[in-house]
Computed example of a mutant assay.
Amino acid sequence: MKREEVIRLFPERIRKILQQADWNPQGLQEIRLRAGKPLILWQDGQEYFVAEQGFLTRHREQAYIVSQEEIRRTMETVGTYSLYAYEEELKQGFLTIQGGHRVGVAGKAIMEEQKVKGLSQISCINIRFAHQITGCADMVIPYVTEEGKLCHTLIISPPGCGKTTLLRDLVRQISDGWETFPGYTVGVVDERSEIGGSYQGIPQNDVGIRTDVLDCCSKAEGMVMLLRSMAPQVIAVDEIGNYEDIRAIEMTLNSGCKLLATVHGSSIDEIRKKPLLERLMKEHVFERYIILQKETAGQIGKVQEIYDERGTCLYQRQRSVC
């Protein structure tokens, strides 16, 4: 990602501020705009206010205040990168733009038959910048494959610890294959455009040469659609949890398809207490559990533990034997 790619998303005044500011595209995570509130930038896990003079600061009184007009003009700009699906994607509260970056919005919801039809009077924008960490799944690959076959795998992680990033790289490697492992056909249900980061239907992230991405589709419907139409050997989904997801997972397993999934949580014990997942765990559906955890505030999580289906610890960070 280049600085110019970021700066061009904003109206003239904010563009000039960001041109002067000392920020690193590789470490940039989010830029948040709220009408009448400070311009905020997240970089390397830290929050900064952006001053009108172009410097980053911790003092809110020095921050540039975003106007409602600048919110409107920013939406006009990002909308041109996604006009083909502007209204449809806004129903979900975000747009995905070129580069796989995600523009989240908040404002007044337009309701119809108890469903969100669209958003108007947008007053808050959160641009989350996509970063692919190629190779981040290297250390877990030996644990999620056994005798040349892939294991059903569940990644357990608190929010913001990198579970989607890890899942994406697992998909890439399993799809491409390597010398001792033939590549698998992978179907990705990308409900919030976070795995593939698709723009105009084309994944902007590298998800492998044998991967098919179903973008902006609910996980439950998407899994069934892929099974019927794309004959995947593996299905990958992010953040499972509701009843429909579990039913679709059971259909996936009955089809002989392997499953890669993530769920919010901090431990296996916590996941066992979730009624919908408890039965899957008792039946040893998942053959591997990967636990991610943050060590300190602002840090992306790291793999802490890996367990098999019976709860035997296969890996524990900083220890070679459990």
Rank of each mutant, 00 (worst) to 15 (best):
K219I: 04
K219M: 10
K219G: 10
A220R: 02
A220I: 04
A220P: 12
A220D: 04
A220E: 05
G222L: 00
G222Y: 00
G222T: 01
M223F: 01
M223S: 06
M223T: 03
M223H: 01
M223E: 04
V224I: 15
V224F: 00
V224K: 01
V224Q: 07
V224P: 05
M225G: 11
M225T: 13
M225H: 11
L226Y: 01
L226P: 07
L226N: 04
L227H: 03
R228F: 01
R228V: 01
S229A: 09
S229T: 13
M230F: 05
M230R: 10
M230I: 15
A231T: 13
A231N: 12
A231P: 11
A231Q: 10
P232D: 05
P232Y: 00
P232V: 13
P232S: 07
P232G: 09
P232L: 03
Q233G: 07
Q233M: 06
Q233P: 03
Q233S: 06
Q233Y: 03
Q233W: 03
V234E: 14
V234L: 12
V234F: 01
I235E: 00
I235S: 06
I235K: 02
A236W: 04
A236T: 15
A236G: 12
V237R: 03
D238N: 14
D238H: 07
D238A: 09
D238M: 02
D238W: 01
E239G: 05
E239A: 05
E239D: 15
I240F: 07
G241S: 14
G241E: 15
G241C: 14
G241W: 13
G241K: 01
N242R: 13
N242K: 14
N242A: 12
E244L: 07
E244V: 00
E244K: 06
D245E: 10
D245H: 07
D245Y: 02
D245K: 00
D245I: 00
I246R: 06
I246Y: 08
R247N: 03
R247S: 04
A248G: 09
A248C: 09
A248I: 02
I249Y: 05
I249Q: 04
E250R: 14
E250A: 12
M251T: 09
M251C: 11
M251S: 11
T252Q: 03
T252K: 00
T252Y: 00
L253Q: 11
L253G: 08
L253M: 11
L253E: 11
N254V: 10
N254L: 15
N254Q: 15
N254Y: 12
N254T: 13
S255V: 10
S255P: 11
S255N: 14
S255H: 10
G256V: 09
C257V: 15
C257G: 08
C257E: 14
C257K: 08
C257A: 15
K258R: 15
K258C: 03
K258S: 09
K258T: 05
K258I: 04
L259A: 07
L259Q: 05
L259S: 06
L259R: 03
L259I: 09
A261H: 11
A261R: 07
A261Q: 10
T262H: 08
T262M: 10
